[in-house]
């Protein structure tokens, strides 16, 4: 890989010639704000918040799409850059609901973060604002187009990663909006509800219904774990608050790159289903009766011993589980085999 010498904020750097300014800056630990950039998606260059000043350039190029070149001198936080970012933030502000106090996204909203960073407290531009009805037709997330900042990540994620292509930009000018073909509610579109759009939305335009009003980022504990559904093995962080799951963040650094499907992304609420078994049960006279662990376990052990003594170990069989962990499967077969039988199997064949 050929290298080029560049200067960012006065710091001389040698970076891969294939890098964008954004990547080069990141490699040097310099953070440039972005809304529309996602490393695995087509580079859109849409939001223009990442513009930087390049010596000799007529205008301010977008860091996320402009490749570095030999001798490039870049300023990422010059006065001209900050002014441009402020104006663009103010333009977004002028057309965005000011309900941060109660917005689901507060605390993990990029618009909020950058407004804070560049001290944008409001907008001098007064005029028309968009008015869209909240789309809550699908069971998993809200679509509030009033909060959309048109970064287009949902569009690209849906088309480029999922392949569903359920949403696209529609109309032009100020009336532009991100919506489904023929502008029908999401539920009637080709959306398969994987929720990957929700996970990349930088603002509160797409927010999950699960954990509503209970999912402030600073109040949740995030626990990395692996999805219990199919064999893809997607990993994600469970958001936990007061011993309840209130949400999910995919593991973007994991092998599945943060991709998810509807079951994994939203289908975890069975954990607190009222149907959950809370205590051991022993059947007495055809009816289940609640029992203590001691009673139940003693009974199981006694029965296994009895059957083995009377009919031999091979009269016992065990079905292990493709849903349980390795450790549990291991212990299960160890139990059966220690009893003296190889009668152990699971539903791999189904």
């Amino acid at each position: 890989m050929s290298k080029v010498k560049i200067t960012i904020n006065g710091m001389p750097l040698e970076v891969d010639a294939s890098m964008t300014i954004l990547e080069a800056a990141e490699s040097a630990g310099i953070e440039i704000p972005t809304f529309c950039h996602d490393p695995e998606l087509t580079r859109a260059g849409a939001c223009r918040i990442c513009v930087v000043e390049v010596a000799g350039a007529r205008n301010l190029p977008a860091a996320c799409t402009t490749p570095v070149s030999e001798g490039m001198v870049i300023e990422t936080e010059s006065e001209r850059v900050i002014k441009a970012r402020r104006v663009n933030l103010q333009l977004i502000w002028a057309n965005h609901p000011q309900d941060c106090l109660t917005c689901e996204k507060t605390g993990s909203c990029k618009l909020q973060d950058y407004s804070y960073r560049y001290n944008v407290t409001g907008s001098p531009y007064k005029g028309e604002t968009k008015v869209h009805e909240l789309d809550d037709t699908n069971p998993f997330f809200f679509r509030d187009l009033n909060k959309c900042i048109y970064c287009g990540k949902c569009v690209r994620k849906c088309y480029e990663v999922n392949g569903a292509g359920a949403v696209e930009f529609m109309y032009r000018g100020f009336n532009t909006k991100v919506t489904t073909a023929f502008d029908v509610p999401l539920e009637e579109s080709s959306c398969v509800m994987c929720g990957m759009c929700v996970d990349v939305c930088p603002v509160g335009a797409l927010t999950p219904k699960q954990g509503l009003h209970n999912n402030r980022p600073w109040e949740v504990k995030k626990v990395l774990t692996t999805c219990p559904y199919c064999g893809c093995g997607c990993t994600y962080y469970l958001h936990v608050r007061n011993d309840k799951i209130v949400g999910i963040t995919p593991n973007f650094k994991g092998p599945m790159k943060g991709h998810m499907c509807v079951k994994g992304r939203f289908g975890w609420d069975f954990v607190d289903s009222p149907d959950r078994l809370k205590t051991p049960l022993i059947k007495k006279n055809g009816e289940f009766v609640e029992a203590t662990w001691e009673e139940a376990l003693d009974l199981v052990a006694a029965k296994f011993k009895e059957v083995r003594a009377q009919y031999g170990a091979d009269a016992i069989a065990g079905l292990s589980s493709a849903r349980a962990t390795n450790e549990e499967n291991y212990l299960f077969q160890k139990l059966l085999r220690s009893l003296g039988t190889n009668n152990v199997d699971h539903c791999a064949r189904l």
């Binding site: 774990t225 692996t226 093995g233 990993t235 205590t279 051991p280 049960l281 139940a296 376990l297």
Partner: peptide, 25 residues
């Protein structure tokens, strides 16, 4: 005859192996 209440994946520790033989926590 006996039903023993187990916990879900979210309530325990261990490892799963996905279809590409990747052992994950």
């Amino acid at each position: 005859d006996v039903v023993l209440p187990a916990v879900s994946w979210a309530e325990k520790e261990g490892t799963f192996v996905n279809t590409e033989r990747r052992v994950q926590k």
